[in-house]
Amino acid sequence: MFSRQRRNVLPGFRLTMGYTILYLCLIVIVPLLTLPVQSWELGWSAFWRVVSDARVVASYRLSIGAAFAAACVNAVFGLIVAWVLTRYRFPGQRLFDALIDLPFALPTAVAGITLTTLYAPNGWIGRYLNDLGVQVAFTPLGITVALTFIGLPFVVRTLQPVIDDLDLEIEEAASSLGATRWQILRRVVLPFLFPAWLTGFALAFARAIGEYGSVVFIAGNMPMRTEITPLLIITQLEQFNYAAATAIAVVLLVISFALLLAINGLQAWTSRRLAA
């Protein structure tokens, strides 16, 4: 109560707040408002016809399915990588730790052409997979590989600080009460990590759904089979079919926002757990 009545002696609130709101509106809010307004003008039945078209529905299924599969791969390996990088010591550890962020720093187009070259039937990796009868490039599997690359840092970077925060005394206590190492991991460590793990998974998933640059090269882009939703938006744009592009974009945006809300909820859960 008392501190609320104290006058804030720092200047510049109006200036900085005004500028923040103005810039936010000009760069983000007004441009994004074009999407609901344009699709409103399209009318409900025309909107529905576009977004429920068989080719578009196939693209949602592919985008969501491949993003989900990639997020699952990252959840499993991300947990192992985060644990190993935080708890163990081995030569080259700092280097590997710094490299985790490569997918954030490497432009997606570079990732796209590189992964395509590696996994093409005559590529460094694709050659061997081809001998085994597995084709990666230009199939949904290739899309999953690209999305795994893009989402790799999320699970690792969300888990690392939480693992670092784990109090060793709790593990000590569990151990002195007779728990085996496996029981400690399963009953003590994993439940503690779970909210952050889920957050990392959701972040990787959300990022992968809208991803374009790294996927478009390796996908092959065949309608109904390997055509992701963002590419479909570009295809419509290139045919100057702005209305259809907008309608599909609205659906993609709604999916992303739903995930963002879920992530914020998870985050609140995580911080409550950490505070407790």
């Binding site: 994004l32 374009y212 938006i233 974009a249 993609l252 945006l253 992303s256």
Partner: peptide
């Protein structure tokens, strides 16, 4: 704060599209 984070949740393709629409 959520509004400031918004561009992260938007697919890059949509980020381009909105400026074409404008």
């Amino acid at each position: 704060l959520t509004l400031i984070d918004l561009p992260f949740a938007v697919s890059p393709v949509i980020a381009g599209l909105i400026f074409v629409l404008l």
